[in-house]
């Protein structure tokens, strides 16, 4: 499903193009979650920031961080992909993620539709191997554990562990039931 932030902001009569402050983040989050009430398990949510110029760290904290935490359960599992991110949005999201990692001892990242300023299709701190795997999945749409093991020159159980880690971060999807060992891009 697609969440168009501009439309939500317009419905809530929030002045554009900048989405700043915690209260604005909370309002957008609540409306977006309401719109996601019919989400199915494993669905990808494209969060489209077209028409938005700046989101500050308070907004990121109240909106995006909460969405990512929600995507990891305990309810329905879903995957977030960001579209139309400006350079300042990327800077501010990255800054919040860095703080989150430092203080929670827990990793966080999000997939992007377009190439970011860091020359990647995600924002957040990943290892080089994880980055390679995400790129491979993005290009090939899906891959088996054996393919990934070959890509990163590791044993299959190590590749599986890496893919499961990306799944836990909601950066890669598990293949359909029965497709054991298959992982898909977000």
């Amino acid at each position: 499903m697609v969440i168009r932030i501009k439309n939500i902001a317009r419905d809530l009569k929030i002045r554009l193009p900048d989405l700043i402050t915690r209260s604005v983040g909370r309002r957008i989050y609540e409306r977006a979650r309401k719109n996601m009430s019919h989400l199915t398990d494993g669905e990808v949510v494209l969060v489209d920031f077209a028409g938005i110029q700046v989101i500050d760290s308070s907004f990121v904290d109240e909106f995006l961080l909460r969405m990512i935490e929600d995507s990891r359960g305990p309810g329905i599992t879903f995957f977030i992909k960001l579209a139309n991110i400006t350079p300042i949005m990327e800077t501010n999201i990255d800054s919040v993620f860095s703080s989150y990692r430092a203080y929670n001892d827990s990793r966080i990242a999000v997939v992007t539709e377009s190439l970011t300023g860091s020359n990647a299709y995600y924002i957040g701190g990943l290892t080089e191997a994880e980055r390679d795997v995400l790129d491979y999945l993005r290009i090939n749409k899906a891959a088996h554990v054996a393919d990934i093991a070959s890509l990163i020159a590791k044993e299959e159980h190590e590749a599986k562990e890496l893919l499961e880690g990306l799944y836990a971060l909601r950066l890669a999807r598990r293949g359909p039931a029965g497709g054991s060992g298959l992982f898909q891009s977000v």
Binding site: I20, T21, R22, Q53, V54, S57, P87, I88, T91
Partner: peptide, 16 residues
């Protein structure tokens, strides 16, 4: 092109 957005962030962060 980016400096205006940077300042929007700065104003927002400090005022909050």
């Amino acid at each position: 092109t980016e400096i205006i957005d940077y300042f929007v962030t700065v104003i927002s962060e400090v005022c909050q």
